[in-house]
Each structure stands twice: as structure tokens, then as C-alpha cells.
């Protein structure tokens, strides 16, 4: 029994309404995703913009009620229930959503107020100071306002606020993407230390493959609303099975690493009208006619390595037209 169990989740939004306001199409932001995270485990979720990774983070933390599928946290159904104790989301500019007139202390202690926990002012300030020190800020920071902090410091306050809830699962959505590289390293190290000390599980969502590989034990790659590959982070990056993962890996510009093969052609298709068969086949360098017709099944290519591709790695024995991303 995992801490988090996401089963066949779909999140479809109505789009392009007709004259009567009825949707003529559905935007399939998340289209059949299953994912589990064990207690204390760090799972990375990587993909490009529009692949549905942030939507999945919002569904998991209850900010969006999925169109279909289940989300269970600690055995309880939490689909569509924001504010589940122990389940916290931190995103790119978490403080951007906070009242700019709140002090850091008010921001950090917000989860306690939301849960109706009352405490004496002295105790509250002592606890806030403890959390700020956990994220590497001085206690003096608690009386300052968001605009007085740098980007890296704001991200630390966002983290301290999430930690106030003592999360068992922290969903981090692009938490270091807006930071300069020297500051990014500080925040990544901080996250890793907090995870070790508190034993919390993390879902680390990012477009940055190298950062995801660095922080995660296991990772999942998303494309157009579906998970197309999953496995140990190290292995997925070193020996990608899915041609899309391979393209992602070779496209990452990294100093000291020779450029990979030719750049992937084209751009992801619209989630309003995903192509039939494998949603990647139009850009895929190894696609066959089958790929345009039959959706590849989600299969275990080797122990712990899952992929949704007809052609990748060991061949797929029994081909069924089952949707990718489901198990």
C-alpha cells in the first residue's frame, strides 16, 4: 500500500464552446495517468509545457477534481479535496499567490490558522523561527514582507509554509525553475536535506531533466497527458527506452557533453485533438504504420522499467489497443 495511489486519472476541460456555450471539444490535459509514491520516496515527473504535469500536481493535491479516476492518499480518497493534512503543494512562485501585506511569519503560519490551531504569540514565533531556520533563513526574516526577499528566499519561505503542515508528501511543481543556477543548487540541496531529515515523500515536477534525475529515485516522463516511460531515474536518463525520452535526453544542453543526434522535428500536437494511435508517432523517428493506428500498451520492459511504445526495447508480445498510461 503506497502513500499515494493515483489510478487512471483523467482531467478533461471543456474547450471552444459553441453559440450555446456547449463545449465542442475537450482539452485532455491529463488522459489516463496512474502513479504511486511510497512513504519517503522521491518521484520525478518530467515533461515539456502543456504535457499535463502541473495539472496532475493540482489534481493530486486536490486543487482540481479529476474528470475520472481515483486519487488516494494514505488510503483515503482525496480527489477534489484541497487542504488534506499532510499533502502540500509548492510551486514556482508560491508567494505570488499570497497577500503581499502579510509578513513572512503570517505566511508561514497560515496552515495552522487554516486548521484552527491556536497558540500563544511567543510559541508561534518560536515555531516560525524554527521553520525559517530549517530552510536556511534567519529568524529576523519573519517580520519582513514578500517583496523584501530575493527569488531564492521567497522560495524558501514557500517551503517553510508547506513544512508547517508537516507534510508526508510534498508536491514540488517547478520550484527551482525560476532561480539562478547558483541559487538553484542551494534550494535543491535544501530540499534533499529536508527530505532526509523529515522522511517525507516528494513528487518533483519539472521540465528540467537533469534536476529531476538529480533529486529523484524514480521518474516518470509525460507526453500529451500520459506517462510514456517510468523507471529508476538513473536508468531512464542513461538508457531511455521511449524515443521521446531519448530525444529529451539528447536535447538537454549540458556543458562538456557532446550534442546528441538531430533535434526532434515539430512540436507536441494539441491536447484538443491528440492524434490516433501513439500520440507521439507524428514526431517519432522510429514510428511504423502500427503506431499511427494502435495505442501502445503500458508494459514492463524489464523489472521496474515501464514504457508505452510498440518499438522500444524488448518487443511487445501481445499488442492490445489499451490506452497508454494505464495499468
Amino acid at each position: 500500500m503506497s502513500l499515494l495511489e493515483v489510478h487512471d486519472v483523467r482531467m478533461h476541460y471543456p474547450a471552444s464552446p459553441d453559440a450555446w456555450g456547449r463545449p465542442r471539444a475537450w482539452l485532455r490535459a491529463v488522459d489516463g495517468v496512474s502513479l504511486s509514491i511510497a512513504e519517503g520516496e522521491v518521484v520525478g515527473l518530467v515533461g515539456e509545457s502543456g504535457c499535463g504535469k502541473s495539472t496532475l500536481g493540482r489534481v493530486i493535491t486536490g486543487l482540481e477534481r479529476p474528470t475520472a479516476g481515483t486519487v488516494r492518499f494514505g488510503g483515503r480518497d482525496v480527489a477534489g479535496r484541497a487542504g488534506t493534512p499532510g499533502l502540500q503543494l509548492v510551486f514556482q512562485d508560491s508567494l505570488g499567490s499570497m497577500d503581499p501585506r502579510w509578513t513572512a511569519a503570517e505566511i508561514v503560519s497560515e496552515p495552522w490558522r487554516a486548521r484552527g490551531r491556536r497558540m500563544a504569540r511567543g510559541e508561534l514565533r518560536r515555531k516560525v523561527a524554527g521553520l525559517l531556520s530549517d530552510v536556511g533563513l534567519e529568524a529576523a526574516a519573519m517580520d519582513r514582507y514578500p517583496h523584501e526577499f530575493s527569488g531564492g528566499q521567497r522560495q524558501r519561505i514557500g517551503l517553510a509554509r508547506a513544512l508547517a503542515d508537516e507534510p508526508r508528501l510534498l508536491v514540488c511543481d517547478e520550484v527551482v525553475s525560476a532561480l539562478d543556477v547558483s541559487v538553484q543548487a542551494q534550494v535543491v540541496n535544501l530540499l534533499m536535506r529536508l527530505r532526509r531529515e523529515r522522511g517525507m515523500a516528494m513528487l518533483f515536477i519539472s521540465h528540467d531533466l537533469a534536476v529531476v534525475e538529480h533529486v529523484s529515485a524514480r521518474m516518470a516522463v509525460m507526453y500529451l497527458g500520459r506517462i510514456i516511460e517510468e523507471g529508476r531515474a538513473r536508468e531512464v536518463c542513461a538508457r531511455p527506452l521511449h524515443p521521446y525520452t531519448a530525444a529529451l535526453v539528447s536535447a538537454v544542453p549540458e556543458p562538456g557533453r557532446a550534442r546528441g543526434g538531430p533535434a526532434l522535428q515539430g512540436e507536441p500536437p494539441s491536447p484538443l485533438s491528440p492524434p490516433p494511435g501513439c500520440t507521439f508517432h507524428l514526431r517519432c523517428p522510429i514510428a511504423t504504420t502500427r503506431c499511427g493506428a494502435v495505442s501502445p500498451s503500458w508494459r514492463e520492459a524489464s523489472p521496474g522499467r515501464w514504457v508505452a511504445c510498440h518499438e522500444a526495447g524488448p518487443t511487445d508480445p501481445g499488442v492490445q489497443a489499451s490506452p497508454a498510461g494505464t495499468r
Binding site: 530575493s150 543556477v181 542551494q186 540541496n189 537533469a210 534525475e213 533529486v215 536518463c237 542513461a238 549540458e254
Partner: peptide, 23 residues
């Protein structure tokens, strides 16, 4: 410091070399 702070695929996990403070 900049070069060392970049996480790279296939490198040892563990602490990234970080620079204290900000620009």
C-alpha cells in the same frame, strides 16, 4: 562555482556544489 552547481545527468547524486548568498 557556476559549472559545479549544474546538476548533470549520470553524475553522482548527493550535494550540488552551491555558492552561498545571491548575486
Amino acid at each position: 562555482a557556476l559549472v559545479a552547481a549544474i546538476p548533470r545527468m549520470g553524475h553522482a547524486r548527493g550535494e550540488l556544489a552551491s555558492v552561498p548568498g545571491g548575486v
